[in-house]
Amino acid sequence: MDSSTLIFLAFLAAVVAPTLWVIAKGGVGNAVTDVADEIVFDVQYAEVDAAMADLLGTARRVQLRMVLPGTYTVTYKRTPGWAIVVAIFGFPVGLLALFLGTVRYQLVLSVTPEGGATRVRVVGRVHRKFAEAIGKALWARFAGSIASR
């Protein structure tokens, strides 16, 4: 074997194999959580529905789609830091890490009237920080109006 073949094989062993292993394991420090929550607010449906659309419609890099009246899907993509590092140091083959490492997350939010109150259901699999941000925003907006049911 000549030296260029050895260098290429060393590159494969050092960059590509660990990258594939990390992808198979779900990423480094992957803080993904399954969300299945619901809460009832003592607020009219129209106010909560408008707040949800306003809150999620202004988020960066988030695609908001109304599936049915009162039902939204929130989709976003995230490329982990390890994929970016592998892409830089493993160029050009390392660019595969950008494509293989990008993860798509999705939440389904439904807002339904319930008497004079409104029920909000959130279901999906998302990055923990994103779920916490949505929860904090809803809490800040409607904290005083949580129904005791």
Rank of each mutant, 00 (worst) to 15 (best):
G81K: 04
G124K: 00
V111N: 14
R121G: 11
D37I: 09
A117H: 06
L100A: 10
R121P: 12
L56T: 05
S145T: 15
V122K: 08
K77R: 07
T5M: 04
A140K: 05
E38F: 08
R121M: 06
G116L: 04
I146Y: 13
V86P: 04
M52R: 05
G115T: 04
G81Q: 10
H127L: 02
T19W: 07
A46N: 02
A143W: 02
I23E: 14
G90C: 00
G29R: 00
T71E: 10
L138R: 02
A50E: 11
V86A: 07
V32C: 10
G124M: 01
A53K: 09
H127K: 00
P18I: 00
I146G: 12
V62D: 12
L100N: 06
F89T: 08
L64S: 03
L100P: 06
V86R: 02
Q44H: 13
T79H: 12
L12M: 11
A36Q: 15
R60S: 11
V126M: 03
G26F: 02
A13C: 07
I88E: 10
I84G: 06
V62F: 08
G144A: 01
V74R: 00
V28D: 11
V122D: 13
Q63A: 10
V32N: 13
R60D: 13
S3F: 09
A59D: 14
L12T: 13
I23L: 11
G124V: 01
Q44W: 13
V43T: 08
F11P: 15
A50G: 06
S3K: 07
L107Q: 00
T118C: 14
A10H: 03
P80E: 05
V120N: 10
T33Y: 01
D2T: 11
G144W: 03
V85C: 05
V108P: 14
R60K: 09
V86Y: 04
G81M: 08
F41S: 14
A17V: 15
P80K: 00
E47T: 09
P92Y: 05
V16H: 11
A83M: 05
T112D: 12
T19Q: 07
T71S: 06
D37N: 14
T75M: 12
H127E: 09
G94Y: 02
T73L: 14
V86S: 06
A50Q: 11
Q44T: 10
A97W: 03
V122I: 12
E132Y: 05
V123Q: 08
V15A: 03
P18K: 00
L55C: 12
V74Y: 01
I7M: 12
T75F: 11
M66N: 14
G70T: 03
F91N: 10
A140G: 11
L95H: 15
V32W: 09
E47W: 10
F11G: 15
V120E: 14
V111M: 15
E38P: 07
A83N: 06
A50V: 06
G57A: 02
A14E: 13
I23M: 08
D37G: 14
A10Q: 06
L98P: 00
M52Q: 08
V35Y: 04
